[in-house]
Design a protein around this nucleic acid. Structure first.
Lengths: 140, 140
DNA sequence: CTCCCTGCAAATCCTTTGCATACAG
DNA sequence: CTGTATGCAAAGGATTTGCAGGGAG
């Protein structure tokens, strides 16, 4: 997980994309760092728990901005289940097709994503690897 | 793309999962094979074009069944854009973050997905690799 | 100061569901 | 025959948008 001190780097990233630094945005980012692959609603609920009122629309709008600049990744956990996370180092996901459990998986790969993208004339931004299966609880 | 002759194998796959063979399901599968990463609605529209009336609910229900048995993969092309394809050989996707263009990418990888899954106690089903960037048209 | 951001509520869009009928096995 | 699949329409849920006021730069 990304360290709290990295907030200053995140602030620079937002500024470099002309995104204004607002208390709501910083709060949402910090909440995403605290929670484990939260849904938009879980972020919103967590904020309510600490008596911070940020509208769900702002949560969604912020997530969208952060996705666009590559700070946030969307994880598809099936059946209308969408979760989000701050992208830090290269880690990928192991997802249970049954219950939606998401495990972070760290491994190295020899795939040169940037080269693959540019071979088709694309500017590489980021990659996403999802491994689907049945978790220990669901596989029986 | 999967060959039409493979329909018999698909029929077997459905049967082995206790999924009944209906004209609607076969038609939807063939339409998915014909179209390039269609959305649910594109499948439905294509059927209307040839005067076949299959309700959009049946399209969605069928896609869901096919996803569950691992025949169909969902591709996330951002901004509430969900596309589907029949899974055939191992190929992955290069997706434009701007316009949603999807290119199929074929490459080999040394990642042993099954081993990674079982290391966490998961039964491996399938994997998904998405590379995001900006396509030649959008990167300027 | 100016323009972007926020909150609220309403709108929208995608997907699923309930029910009666049809049909695959 | 029996139980699942289908069609239709309606429900449901997630995400976005319009608008007026507030705040960052």
């Amino acid at each position: 997980m990304m360290m709290t001190e990295d907030i200053s780097k995140i602030v620079e990233l937002l500024q470099s994309h002309g995104i204004r630094i607002t208390p709501q945005r910083l709060t949402i980012i910090q909440t995403m760092m605290k929670l484990d692959h939260p849904t938009a609603e879980e972020i919103h609920d967590e904020l309510e728990n600490v008596y911070i009122n940020i509208s769900i629309a702002t949560v969604y709008n912020t997530i969208r901005s952060l996705k666009e600049i590559g700070l946030v990744r969307e994880i598809n956990c099936g059946e209308g289940c969408t979760r989000f996370e701050i992208i830090d180092d290269s880690h990928y996901h192991l997802i249970c097709k049954q219950c939606g459990r998401i495990d972070d998986i760290h491994f190295e790969t020899d795939i040169d994503f940037a080269a693959i993208a540019s071979a088709s004339g694309f500017d590489f931004k980021e990659e996403n690897i999802e491994i689907y299966g049945l978790c220990p609880q669901c596989k029986n």
